[in-house]
Design a protein around this nucleic acid. Structure first.
Length: 277
DNA sequence: AAGAATGTTACATG
DNA sequence: ACATGTAACATTCT
């Protein structure tokens, strides 16, 4: 579920909640597969006593850096969420990892579909070395995007979803960016002319910043939706132009939005604005 | 009640 | 080696 803006919102909220400086006094793992590395038993033993030095984001990973130089990387996948509450509170349904803190609170990982993953590693590089550039970094220029597209014959949408090419985009923001740049998701990546690359570059940054400004996208009200710390909803759903707006009018030209499947993900496009390859 | 859901990856097939 | 496709993960919502 969570893409760059949602993950960053959670990181911001964790920092605002005062996680930095806290020490983990106890760890409980209630669904073993949630902890991918190391084994759940080693995870609990190793993380106990660690002090959190920083909480930040890279791609869609939440990174907890400890004073020991070990790092915990958490990927929320589709339905992972964090909550912070009293350590004495009994474990709730779908809470698969609970980290007790030295201030009496506990950081709880809630994940209905159980796809989320924890990795505790001594060397950060093992977590990060396969990611492409961060699209909101100043170094991510239109020229850089042009280089990423060069020689790639894949359709533009699956390429933008590939975290090794560019980090942090997911289905929502790719659909929004392609609409903003008036590009069809099936266009071959290397077929974009310079004007189209510039438009795509601007669109990617604009939709991510808009998502960030509204603290992420929460659709509907079900369990599986994005919620930040304390079940806070993001407000970005009100600002989406095409995503999950099938049959509603395109905000630009009024033609109905259509849904198609590209690379087994649903895609939302305006047939009039986003011309076929 | 079948199908889809904001993600990733391993494996298969072309 | 490359590209594309499918299944798997597991549960809830429409």
């Amino acid at each position: 579920m969570p893409e760059l803006p949602e993950v960053q919102t959670i990181v911001n909220d964790l920092n605002a909640a005062g996680l930095v400086g806290r020490v983990i006094t106890k760890a409980g793992v209630y669904w073993p597969k949630t902890v991918a590395t190391p084994s759940p038993a080693d995870f609990c033993r190793l993380i106990k006593g660690q002090a959190i030095r920083a909480v930040y984001r890279r791609a869609k990973l939440i990174l907890f850096e400890f004073n020991s130089n070990w790092t915990l990387g958490v990927h929320l996948r589709m339905t992972g969420r964090f909550g912070l509450s009293d350590a004495g509170k009994p474990r709730q349904k779908h809470e698969h990892v609970i980290l007790d803190l030295d201030d009496g609170r506990a950081l709880r990982f809630h994940d209905t579909r159980k796809f989320g993953r924890f990795q505790l590693v001594a060397d950060l590089r093992t977590l990060l070395n396969h990611f492409g550039p961060e699209p909101l970094e100043p170094s991510f220029t239109s020229r850089r995007l042009s280089q990423l597209l060069r020689g790639r014959q894949r359709p533009i949408k699956p390429l933008l979803l590939d975290q090794a090419v560019i980090a942090g985009l997911g289905n929502i923001y790719v659909d929004e960016a392609l609409w903003a740049a008036r590009l069809h998701p099936l266009r071959r990546a290397d077929s974009l002319n310079p004007e189209e690359v510039t438009a795509l570059h601007r669109a990617i940054r604009r939709v991510l910043r808009t998502g960030l400004r509204h603290n992420g996208t929460t659709l509907g009200s079900g369990q599986g939706n994005f919620y930040s710390l304390g079940n806070t909803r993001g407000q970005n759903a009100n600002h989406l132009k095409v995503f999950r707006r099938t049959q509603l009018p395109c905000p630009r030209c009024g033609a109905p939005i259509v849904r198609l499947v590209v690379g087994q993900r649903s895609s939302h496009v305006c047939r009039h604005c986003q011309l076929e390859k």
